[in-house]
Design a protein around this nucleic acid. Sequence first.
DNA 1: CTTGACCTAAACATAG
DNA 2: CCTATGTTTAGGTCAA
Length: 240
Amino acid sequence: MENCSHTLPPSSPCPPTFEGSIPFSSSPLQTCSGGHVSLPLSPISFPPSPTSLSPATAESIHSSSPLSHCTASYCLEGQNIPCLSPANISDQDDLTCLNWLHQRGNLLPLKSLHKMTPLPQLESSVPIRPLPPASSKPPYSFGSLIFMAIEDSSERRLPVKDIYDWIVNNFPYYQTASGGWRNSVRHNLSLSKSFRRIQRDKSQSVGKGSLWCVCSEYRPALLEILSLMPSSSPHPHPKY
DNA sequence: CTTGACCTAAACATAG
DNA sequence: CCTATGTTTAGGTCAA
C-alpha cells in the first residue's frame, strides 16, 4: 500500500522554464523529448487559442499549490490515507492526466451555456458553470464531469455511484441516456491517473467500491481553467 | 495521411 | 447467483 506521495521525475529531459516542470503529453504545450513539456507559464493553456495564463497567475498557482513539488494527491493531503493507485508522477506522462481538460474545449463553452442551478460547493471557488439544455448532451468530457462531481462533494471524494448521481442530477441528459455512459465514467476513473482511488474506511463501509478523488497536482490549475475559461470555443467538438 | 484525444462497447475479474 | 465496481482492450470519430 502506498500513500500517493509523488515527486517529479528527478531528471526531466526538459529544462523547466520555471522551477519544476510537469510532464505532459499534450500537444498544445511545448514538447520535449520523452513526451515531456516545459511549462513556460502554466501547466494549462486553453484550446481555442494558445492562451496561457498570465505570468502572474501562473506564478500564483505555482507558488501556492502542490504543483511545484507534486507531493501528494489532493484527497490525501495531510490525511495519510492509503491510496490504492500505484501511480507515481511519471505516470502523468501519458494520456491519462487531466491536462486533456484544456484540450478541444472539453470544458467549453462554459460561459456560453445556460446555467440552470448553481452548485454551492463549486460556487465558492469556481465561477458560474452553465449547463446545456437538458435534452442535449453536455459539452464536457467524462473526465470533466468526474472532476466537477468530485469537486462539488463535501469531502472532495466520491464513490462511483455518487459520481453517477451527481452527473444525473446536474445534467438531465443522463437521466434518460442509456447506461453506457456509466461504463465510460468507470473507464475514465480507472484509466485516468489524475483520479485516485482510495480504500473506503471499513467502519463507514456503506456501499460498494472505493472512493475517488482528484490528484492535487491538477486541482489548482483546473480550478483556474474554470475561472478563466473563454466565453466560447471556436472549435467545439461537434460530436459532443 | 498521420497522430493525438476522446467516446463507446465489451469482456473479464472481483467484491458485497 | 446477481449486481456493482474496477480494469483492460479495441474500434470508431474528430481536429490539428
